[in-house]
């Protein structure tokens, strides 16, 4: 995960360039909102972060997401919600680090120049997103590798933490008698 100090150490990405971005690209603006039923239920993820998480999830969870578009949409929404819950359960300082990472992903300038995604998340192609993930995964910068690992962790924890996601992996959840036991408990 990115720490502030690491971010500053990467230099080029610092505030000065953000200033240039502001100048060159007009006011910093988040990507369009990822459509969700009820934004109020999100604790940590703002609209822009939700778009980014949904796009990244779409690629990282390829093969795991249902094929039918409607089911897929619902699953992705559940996933984004799961990611929000997972992040909101982290200690404050760690949440701050995740938020910095999300800022890096969603800010138009850093999205383009650090992440390498030129279009808003909602419009970015699967290939572009996959390439970004692979670049970070194998980067020589520990900072970017840790960013990839953080995303990997949040995405797969949020997905496989949901019992709906166990379909197709041969795991049928906690022993049945325990489920009954809870019902009566």
């Amino acid at each position: 995960m990115l720490t502030r100090r690491q971010l500053i150490k990467t230099g080029v990405l610092g505030g000065a360039l953000l200033g240039v971005a502001r100048f060159g690209y007009g006011p910093l603006e988040a990507d369009p909102v990822y459509a969700v039923v009820d934004p109020a239920r999100f604790k940590v993820l703002d609209a822009a972060s939700r778009s980014a998480m949904a796009a990244i999830g779409r690629v990282m969870l390829a093969g795991a997401l249902p094929e039918a578009p409607a089911a897929r949409d619902i699953a992705l929404q559940e996933f984004v919600h799961g990611a929000d819950i997972a992040i909101s359960g982290l200690p404050g300082v760690v949440q701050d680090e995740v938020k910095q990472l999300l800022m890096l992903l969603t800010n138009r300038f850093t999205r383009r120049w650090v992440v390498g995604i030129t279009k808003p998340w909602g419009e970015a192609s699967d290939d572009d997103i996959g390439n970004f993930l692979s670049r970070w995964r194998y980067s020589s910068l520990v900072l970017l590798r840790s960013g990839y690992q953080a995303l990997h962790q949040v995405v797969f924890a949020a997905w496989y933490g949901n019992p709906h996601a166990w379909v197709g992996i041969g795991y049928d959840g906690p022993p049945a008698f325990v489920k009954d036991f809870f019902k009566h408990g």
């Binding site: 969870l61 795991a64 992996i169 795991y171």
Partner: peptide, 24 residues
């Protein structure tokens, strides 16, 4: 268990899923 296994296995997308589909 699913979460710990999924975050431990490397990669993403179809490749990651092919591992998870052989979880058993």
């Amino acid at each position: 268990h699913p979460v710990l296994t999924a975050i431990t296995m490397t990669g993403f997308g179809a490749k990651h899923r092919s591992v998870m589909s052989r979880f058993a």
